[in-house]
């Protein structure tokens, strides 16, 4: 754990701020296997109807399934719909 991370965790613990905001981590909300709402991401790395890979601060997040569609993509939010079968977190740090 580097210094900045240490301070961030300290602030989070003292102030009760949302963890994902303070630590700049992706926030994933799933509605069954129908929809995924991913906030705080960096870039879209790959998009096919079977697989979507998104780059985040944590590493690469991959959704696999079928008939995948990106319902909306804006600067810090991506909503994916379709039949989602799996989520994979390819952590590259920590």
């Amino acid at each position: 754990m580097d210094k900045s991370d240490f301070f961030k965790r300290l602030i989070e613990e003292i102030t009760d701020f949302p963890r994902d905001v303070v630590l700049n981590l992706p926030h994933i909300v799933m509605i069954g296997n129908l929809e995924i709402d991913l906030e705080n991401f960096n870039s879209l790395l790959e998009y096919t109807p079977d697989k979507i890979r998104v780059g985040t601060n944590l590493g690469i997040v991959m959704f696999a399934g079928s008939d995948l569609e990106i319902k909306m993509i804006s600067q810090n939010e991506i909503i994916v719909t379709g039949r989602i079968k799996s989520i994979e977190l390819g952590l590259n740090r920590r």
Binding site: Y47, P49, I70, S74
Partner: peptide, 20 residues
């Protein structure tokens, strides 16, 4: 295409119902 989506996203353009 992914590059295009990323470019659009960073230029503050909201893309909806993207279907490949």
């Amino acid at each position: 295409i992914e590059k295009f989506i990323n470019r659009a996203q960073s230029s503050d353009i909201i893309l909806l119902d993207i279907k490949r």
